[in-house]
């Protein structure tokens, strides 16, 4: 029983990316192998609180920025 999974296009860290439809932000982070507690998510220019990762769907055309701390002066 094979179905062609439905995908959507989003903008992720500045690049166009196709992902499976119906993912939440939390599921997307899991798929990307990222630990939610070390990531800050900006969703369509709004900072998304960690407590909302599970309940926030990723929709076609969304602009997501995933940032973290790196070395700097």
């Amino acid at each position: 029983m094979s179905t062609i999974a439905e995908t959507i296009e989003i903008r992720l860290n500045g690049d166009a990316k196709r992902i499976a439809a119906g993912l939440t932000v939390a599921a997307l982070l899991r798929e990307l192998g990222l630990e939610p507690q070390l990531v800050v998510v900006e969703h369509n220019r709004e900072i998304l609180e960690r407590s909302r990762y599970d309940a926030t769907p990723v929709r076609a055309g969304d602009v997501l920025e995933l940032v973290h701390f790196v070395g700097g002066g």
Binding site: L12, N13, L32, L38, V39, L66, H68, F69, V70
Partner: peptide, 20 residues
């Protein structure tokens, strides 16, 4: 100590943030 905020490099997810 100071740290910077940058995009996570999604092509190299093993590249760790400073909190590691």
């Amino acid at each position: 100590v100071t740290v910077a905020v940058r995009r996570i490099d999604l092509d190299r997810t093993k590249e760790e943030g400073i909190l590691h």
